[in-house]
């Protein structure tokens, strides 16, 4: 599934390592990372005190998640292919950042119900 998602936006790469190990691992880890961010934002901080619960905090959280997801994809691509960085890797890291934010938006719809202070964040 993850291969399909990445190839949908970035196209196929002739190195089979992407399909066999990089896409599934990065995809799964990015999804888990998004869940962790949502849990921290909505459940841990969002139920503790009103310190990190507003829309601007949500945007900052999504940006941090995107940066980490991007770095994760780029690093995994270099490690998995044992090659120097190339434009495909850069595109892949951008696409992964985008998917991480999309996961976070979707997870927000579900997790905000469990929150106290971020019940209405971001919408």
């Amino acid at each position: 599934m993850f291969s399909f998602l990445y190839e949908l936006l970035g196209g196929e790469h002739n190195n089979p390592a992407y399909q066999t190990s990089i896409f599934p691992a990065v995809g799964l880890f990015t999804l888990i990372l998004s869940v962790v961010f949502a849990v921290i934002f909505y459940v841990l901080l969002g139920r503790w005190k009103p310190v990190w619960d507003k829309q601007k905090h949500w945007v900052i959280t999504a940006v941090i998640l995107a940066f980490i997801a991007s770095g994760l994809a780029y690093g995994q691509a270099i490690n998995g292919t044992q090659e120097e960085g190339d434009p495909y890797m850069l595109t892949f890291s951008m696409i992964n950042a985008l998917y991480a934010v999309i996961y976070f938006i979707i997870l927000s719809v579900f997790f905000k119900r469990a929150s106290i202070f971020a019940k209405r964040t971001p919408f």
Binding site: I116, F117, K119, R120, T121
Partner: peptide, 8 residues
């Protein structure tokens, strides 16, 4: 007015 309870 920005707090969740206010909106709820």
């Amino acid at each position: 007015s920005n707090e969740s309870f206010y909106k709820e």
